[in-house]
Amino acid sequence: MNPDVLLDGATHRDGRAHEVWAWMREHDPVHWHEPGDFPGFWSLTRHDEVREVLRDPVTFSSASGILLRPLAQGADPGGGRTLALAAPARHQVLREAVAGWFAPRNLRRLTESMEAVARTAVKESLAAGRIDFVADVAARLPVEVVCAFLGIPPADRPDLVAWAWDAFCAGTATERSLAHLEILEYFTDLALHRRDTPGDDLVSVLTQVTVDGEPLPIDDVVLNCDSLFVGGTENVRQTLAGGMLALLEHPAQQELLRADFDGVAATAVDEILRFTTSGLHTMRRATRPADVGGRSVAEGDLLVCWLPSANRDAAQFPDPDVFDVTRTPNRHLALGIGPHYCVGTQLAKLEIRAVLREFLAQARDVTLDGPVERLDSLVVGGPRRLPLRLT
């Protein structure tokens, strides 16, 4: 088994990665990849080592980037500047500024509108009869929710929806890059406007943040807006799509959830997050020599934590390849752990719950209507296209 195949997006698109990860967990759980197109790095595939690294931001820093990048792309432009990539002191300032927007009072305020968007999306899908679940349902609610938090005017949201789709699901790297530039340019204009005329939204909050007595630079505001937008749309969309596919492939589990939605929903959402794990990896850099899983990691070494692999570790999850909507306990790492635990965790779970509730309540017969297309990526996994027929 050659662990280097994990660096080919086709391995993840074709579903072969889980076979590779299973072999690595048993035979080589902390594996060194020699540098090539990518820098040299350690692959971590077991739950224990991944959890250990993510819980220690002092020894294993995210400041230089959390995604594995080809050497030709250079350093991550958000390194040390965004919430996910900041060193502990800066991370604390940014997290405190952002966290209030994900407090229960704001989530309660959004619940009614989330349910309305989910209800409308499912109703329109039933009227159409044949849909692509990814584009027609899973993509809609996350974008609406994130746009509401960021204070994006309703008239601008269709453009953001289109750019987000192209940035993450377009056929070529050039198309994805151009769409992402459109998003960055939009947030630059919005941030400049909100710095002069702040409103009641998250962009305004970021424009007023000070670090070491100085206002957060506009470029940093834009990078944080982009990070929140990407995290709040891409991962939720793929989790929704992956969750719907899992329920279709496991009809007995779907019926358990349908029969007692309120009683099963909480564990079902966590199991969907564990079983599908849309974020494929997160990366850290060692700030000092360390022992990880019996291997000597040097200062400066990169460590790539393969999250779907950690979430299928039999040492942590009995029958890890079984999809069980009643699984408990379920200590998955799909949303991270430690100081960089996803700030929007509860919001993401509410969105997934809202869509599943409406789909199971309104649609009595849902079947696949063609082949499922998966993303070709090292960063995010899940269906790119999920054609359904429903009544």
Rank of each mutant, 00 (worst) to 15 (best):
A116F: 00
D132G: 07
N106I: 10
V137I: 12
L160N: 08
A103P: 01
L184K: 05
G151Y: 08
P158T: 13
A86N: 01
E182P: 01
K123P: 02
L181V: 15
K123A: 15
A167Y: 02
L178C: 04
A86H: 00
S113C: 05
V137L: 00
A99Y: 09
A127V: 14
L184R: 06
A167G: 01
L94Y: 01
A99C: 03
E144I: 02
A89F: 00
D136A: 12
V161E: 11
L110P: 01
R140D: 03
H91N: 07
V93R: 07
E175G: 10
A173T: 14
W101G: 12
V117L: 01
V145T: 11
D156R: 12
D156S: 12
W101Q: 08
L94M: 10
T188V: 01
R140E: 09
R109T: 13
G129S: 13
A116S: 09
L150I: 14
L141R: 05
R109H: 12
E96K: 15
T172I: 11
T188P: 00
S113Y: 07
V117A: 04
A118I: 04
A155N: 15
V146P: 03
T172M: 06
N106S: 09
V161F: 14
A86L: 08
Y186A: 02
A97Q: 08
R119Q: 13
T111C: 02
A138E: 00
R176F: 04
S113I: 07
L110Q: 13
A155W: 12
Y186M: 03
A162N: 09
V137D: 03
L107I: 12
V161T: 14
Q92F: 02
V143C: 08
A155T: 15
Q92A: 15
C147E: 05
A148Y: 06
P154R: 08
F133Y: 14
R119H: 09
W101I: 04
W163S: 02
H91C: 02
P88C: 06
K123G: 13
F133P: 05
W163L: 14
V146I: 15
R105L: 12
P142V: 06
V122D: 00
L126I: 14
H180G: 09
E185C: 05
S177C: 09
F168S: 11
S113A: 11
H91L: 05
A167R: 05
D166E: 15
Q92V: 01
I183R: 03
D159I: 10
I152R: 08
E175N: 04
K123F: 07
T172R: 06
P158A: 13
S125K: 01
A99H: 14
A167W: 02
T111M: 14
R108K: 15
A127W: 07
F168G: 04
E112R: 15
D156Q: 09
A128T: 12
F102C: 05
L184D: 03
L181P: 00
F133H: 08
F168A: 11
P142N: 08
A87G: 02
R108A: 15
T120Q: 13
F149P: 00
A138H: 01
V98L: 07
R140S: 03
A127Q: 14
T172H: 04
F149C: 11
T174L: 11
